[in-house]
Design a protein around this nucleic acid. Structure first.
Lengths: 300, 300
DNA sequence: AACGATTAATTGGTGTCGCTTATGAATATA
DNA sequence: TATATTCATAAGCGACACCAATTAATCGTT
């Protein structure tokens, strides 16, 4: 039988109140239960800590000595529980947001500013995810909500669309199609193409598999990041399909972007699991406000 | 569900070992039990303290913060248990000896010296008791053994006689019997007499009730201490019966002592409850050695 | 002296819980 | 692909913490 915190608390309570009945009330237990607890405590110690008659309860000399230690112990327990509560609160006021690399980059600074204005007490943890996890951390529960481009392979998340944008093809400079201002799917479906590293609906989406009939994608390279994707394209290994905003934010020598006129616009959305808590709900409304009716056009 | 010490210990063990299986071994519990304990702990806290895969266990950020507090808490728990053990040991090495006021006074200094020589680690708590408790604390368990003058009203104690001595009558100077060198019971049974304050066999013994036939004791005063007893006698209220050694150690102006020739010798004994532990046994042997064959004679 | 009031201990019964063994699921390693 | 390692889950069991009711002891009051 080992010492437990309830023993310590019972010991202190009885020592303070000098009465089992009052101490029991303070501890919200019955008096017999407290009697048992103290008896058990003394059994563990090997000596009595109280001298009790039916009329009085006093500490023994040993009990007096132990009481000092018990009090510091109790204080540390309180400190521990206080810290635990504080951490719990901090976590409750923390919003972990994942975002796919290159997704909503045009909104993120404004989102952060606005969210911090609305919820000054909360802390916003932004985490970037690469193409190896198109769910931006939702898959593994690493985030409370994720800024993603549907579709993804999760069926137990809610998805709120916040913007749409054109799809573009990324070509190496000097590619024959680079001479055109825009391209059509038919122009590119037979080109060797760069894909995301993990199989699934998201990879299929950006391989334009929806539009392929008997023209399977010739995947020549798998890239986890925009950088390696663009590098693969620039080196001439193949083309890749991506979103317009990526084209604008990651433009660099060696590659050019051309709008795919007959491909449906892609969606930027927020995904989250289960019922959105207050923080998630607030975040969604912030994002909606910032991106209001956003419909991105291919830039110059 | 409240935090318990076992949660703290489990938390620290897993954090140290970075493995549930190893930590479980260290804690002498099965691995599933430890898993449950940690899960419960996290449930109480409201957030996880470990990130675990089947291949690794790492602290979360919150867990890291809590760990510091847990360690100081653990140290205090150890300190508490250490103190408890120390007190237990101290009590185990402490011998509480009660003695009736005026009993074995001639032996006590030698007993203390000899006992401390035999058991240098032990501590000897000598407590004096007055006539209100002729069991010298044995009655209430206040002592481990008592130096008493049987008989007493306890039937669950062992009694070891260590010495015998004559009984004497205490008379006010100027009393008619003070002229004699010795007295007989017949001389004093009708005298008014001073008695112990509590009824019982011990009081009866010193009232010489064993020797009375149709000559009931005329108790005129009840005294709890030798001082008040002698004062009562000196003031002429009555006589009292006591032991020879008392006569020698408490002799004072106003009273004289005369041996009662036809009263059986009284006994000095050690009483103790149940099986004597090592300390009690040693104490008894010390007392026996010191008082060896002691048979006190009335002094000059 | 007797009674009521107060208080701690005891008793009996019940639901919870912490533990063990056995098994499952996931992931490195050969 | 098979094996080993590791944490989680399941089922069963014994212990125990609790409460309600009662008992025992003691004090104060009439």
């Amino acid at each position: 039988m080992n010492i437990q915190i309830r023993h310590i608390r019972a010991f202190i309570a009885v020592a303070d109140e000098r009465s089992f009945a009052r101490a029991a009330e303070r501890l919200n237990v019955s008096q017999p239960a407290l009697s048992q607890t103290i008896i058990q405590f003394e059994g563990t110690l090997g000596f009595p800590v109280f001298e009790r008659t039916t009329r009085s309860v006093t500490l023994t000399q040993s009990g007096e000595r132990l009481l000092a230690r018990a009090r510091t112990l109790n204080q540390d327990i309180d400190a521990f529980q206080g810290e635990a509560r504080a951490l719990q609160l901090a976590l409750k006021n923390r919003l972990r947001v994942g975002y796919m690399i290159g997704t909503a980059v045009q909104f993120i600074p404004a989102i952060i500013r606005e969210f911090e204005r609305i919820r000054p007490g909360a802390s916003l943890d932004l985490q970037e995810f690469d193409f190896s996890d198109p769910t931006a951390g939702l898959r593994d529960g690493k985030v409370d909500c994720g800024i993603i481009r549907p579709p993804v392979d999760l069926d137990d998340i809610e998805i709120v669309a916040i913007a749409r944008e054109k799809c573009v093809v990324c070509l190496p400079t000097g590619h024959r199609l680079a001479l055109q201002e825009t391209v059509e799917l038919d122009d590119i479906l037979d080109e060797p193409i760069v894909a995301a590293p993990v199989p699934g609906v998201w990879r299929d989406y950006w391989l334009a598999n929806d539009y392929r009939v008997n023209r399977p994608a010739k995947v020549v390279f798998e890239a986890a990041t925009v950088e390696s994707e663009l590098q693969a394209v620039a080196s001439g290994r193949g083309i890749s399909i991506t979103a317009d905003s990526t084209a604008q934010y990651y433009a660099r020598p060696g590659v050019v972007f051309r709008q795919i006129v007959d491909m449906r616009e892609c969606v930027i959305a927020i995904g989250y699991r289960g019922q959105p808590n207050r923080l998630v709900a607030d975040f969604i409304s912030v994002v909606n406000r910032v991106s209001q009716g956003s419909h991105i056009q291919v830039g110059a």
